[in-house]
Nucleic acid binder design. Sequence first.
DNA 1: GAGCACTGC
Length: 703
Amino acid sequence: MAAPWAAVKFWKPGTEGPGINISEERQSAAEASGTSIIYNPHAAFSIEQQRQKLPVFKLRNHILYLVENYQTVVIIGETGCGKSTQIPQYLSEAGWTAEGKVVGVTQPRRVAAVSVAGRVAEERGAVLGHEVGYCIRFDDCTDSQATRIKFLTDGMLVREMMADPLLKKYSVLMLDEAHERTLYTDIAVGLLKKVQKKRGDLRLIVASATLDAEKFKDFFNQNETSDPNKDTCAILTIEGRTFPVDIFYTQSPVPDYVRYTVETVMKIHQTEKDGDILAFLTGQEEVETVVSGLIEQARIMSRSGMKRHLRVLPMYAGLPSSEQMKVFERVSHSVRKVIVATNIAETSITISGIVFVTDCGFVKLRAYNPKTAIESLVLVPVSQASANQRAGRSGRNRSGECYRLYTEEDFMKLPLSTVPEMQRTNLAPVILQLKALGIDNVLRFHFLSPPPAQSMVQALELLYALGGLDKNCRLTEPLGVRMAEFPLNPMFAKMLLESGNFGCSAEILSIAAMMQIQNIFVIPPNQKALAVREHRKFAVEEGDHLTMLNVYEAFIKHNKSSQWCQKHFLNYKGLVRATVVREQLKRLLSKFKVPKKSSEGDPDPILRCIVSGFFANAAKLHSTGVYRTVRDDHELHIHPMSVLYAEKPPQWVVFNEVVQTAKFYMRDVTAVESSWLLELAPHFYQQGTHLSRSTKRAKVDEL
DNA sequence: GAGCACTGC
């Protein structure tokens, strides 16, 4: 094999030919784009001067005019234009927060809601939580009297609508980052269209990307004539403040993007001037492979006299937060930082100083099969919108470069945008929420992108089986109404509400809380064996649910000690969060007068209670050694992370979810008795109602 | 026998 990086050849569209030297290309592109002024928000200007320098400022009066005259304004706000922080202030200054009214701004992520609120409070010289506040789960930093500009997560807005369906306190709502099309943004969009019909005074601002602007406009425009003067929705574009990014493609498809990522990063390091590198891959394993590959290459190079060093850092959600923080640390001028990341770096975190990006062209996305009701995680090519978002991570401080590890031809074949989450998820939680918000006919709900009808049917079927809906698909009283109040998947809500009847609400609360936290068990790549040995200490033969209960109870017993967590390779922050989640769930159980009881060490009531919520996710071990779902005979396997993976496989199990990678794997698995299924879910497995298929009955009756 | 995108209530 030749020098590993020598094989990588990129070319830039619109140039003479392929195989161009990267440095020359960059230089000519920089010349063509002209000089740009670097914007530094923390330079020595007054806050007012800084605000006026933002691109959005020039359009201040135009925005206010549109909001005054159109019920909905779609704003195409490019990165760095200042829309999220400025528009709410303009609205407030123009009187939209008079008479106790509030301007609300939603964000898809908690950190964004908090940080943007902080920035705006600072600009207004206000104490966060008074005039300017935020509201996210577990953290309501607003004052019901004083708050005029409120930042909140889109999920929180949907929750607020349960108490106040017409959102009466708001005069304007701005849905920020609506182009991301998260589940809750889409729910909010559908609901707000309904609210607007009853509240002509409510103004809506949808902040979106160019691509979806027309779709949002068509959705909200109530003008049924062909006269554009009667439009109720307008579109406005605000230019951003970013720097040009040169895009490079490979000449031919690469056979192995993991290896080519290493090669490309090393080539950039050798031939390019200063600037950090961000490499996009699809999962933890790929990230770790590339990290060790780069460290090895860098070692070889420094031995052969390379002066500038590489600092290689992994970044993915499962990484302990202390490790995650390292990507934000500054390094000395002689060191180049390389961050090897999953999709977390596409939208969720922003690292400054990135000049070069490599993009493998793939992503792991959630998918939902409406026929089997199985959610899975699948590796798919990214969309063009996603690829452009990745490229844009390089042009934030100065002009950047993006190396796509695929051909331009392949890029053109990619879908323009990612399928909205609404169309690739289990809808049971969504339908329950909509029902609780008084949407009787969910099949006729106005979705921005309607989900598959079969997904709706699956959701209705499950909710009926859980007892949350009656035969006419109406929310049951009190069970369905209560289930909808839980910020959880309906199966968890059912399990919690039943826990009083089984006399184990204390244990079920801990289990439900723990199941909401990802990556409780930390496995550092260099101490894998030791970590696994420590984790084994918590394992019980009943399965993952009781193992999690063990971990939680041990954490409490050791006074929530972070040192104790470290010693046992447990995610301290995750466990703390579990205690907070548990408190919230406990308050809901008290509200519904579910008796507080403990089974005092008896596992049986706990397992039966789990079955009362998760009976639909049951599987039986077949003689061939594989599991099959009871409801439709789908082949499943125990996930290697499950404690039952190493045990003698039990005959019957229930599970929380299925992930599809190489096989269909059940996650969070617990051994049960088949008689419990018949006893606790007779309606689902025996009676064969009009909603459930008769095949289900046959499967259990065989036993 | 062998594996864990990312949010959010």
